Amino acid sequence: MKTICFFNSTEAWGGGEKWHLEASTHLHALGHPVLVIAHIKGELYNRLLTSGIQCLGTRVANLSFLNLLKIRSIKKILEGHNVGTIVMNLSRDLKLAGLASKWAGIERIIYRRGSAIPIKNSWLNRYYFNHIVIEVLVNSHATKKTVLALNPTLFPEDKIKVIYNGIDMDTFLGKPTQPCYQKKDADELVLSNLGRLEFQKNQKFLIDIAAELKRRKLKFKLLIGGEGRLREELVNKAKNLHVQEQIVFAGFIENPKDLICSGDIFVLSSLWEGFGYVLAEAALCKKPIVAFDCSSNPEVVVDGSTGFLTPVDDVKAFADKVQYLAQHPKQRKEMGHRGFIFAHENFDSKSIQEKIVNYLVYGR
Rank of each mutant, 00 (worst) to 15 (best):
L68W: 01
W123L: 12
E345I: 00
G57E: 14
Q353D: 06
P288V: 02
L154T: 06
T58W: 10
K221P: 07
W13R: 15
R338G: 00
F172G: 01
N130I: 00
Y324A: 04
D293N: 15
C285W: 07
L189Y: 02
L234V: 02
K355L: 01
V147C: 09
G98Q: 13
L78R: 13
N67S: 07
I117C: 01
F292M: 11
R112Q: 15
K2C: 02
H81I: 02
I224H: 03
I289V: 13
A250C: 10
E254V: 03
T25M: 12
C5Q: 14
S269Q: 04
V243E: 11
D187L: 03
N193R: 08
F220G: 12
L206F: 02
N46R: 15
I352Y: 02
P288G: 06
V138I: 00
Q178V: 00
D264H: 10
R332Q: 08
D258Q: 13
V87T: 07
R72D: 03
L78A: 06
I209K: 04
L21K: 15
T85A: 09
T310C: 14
E79N: 09
E281F: 00
K161L: 02
I265C: 05
K41T: 03
K175H: 04
R216S: 07
W123P: 01
C5K: 14
I356D: 03
D264L: 05
L99C: 07
S351Q: 15
P298S: 11
Q244H: 13
S64R: 11
L49P: 01
D170P: 00
I134H: 12
G16Y: 09
E299N: 11
V301K: 14
Q203W: 02
A12W: 12
L222F: 07
D93M: 12
G228A: 04
N165A: 03
I106Y: 09
R126N: 14
E188G: 00
Y362P: 02
E157R: 14
P118T: 06
K159L: 02
G80P: 06
H344R: 14
C5L: 10
K144Q: 14
L173R: 11
Y127H: 09
K145H: 09
S295D: 13
V34I: 10
E273I: 01
I160A: 08
L173V: 00
K184Q: 13
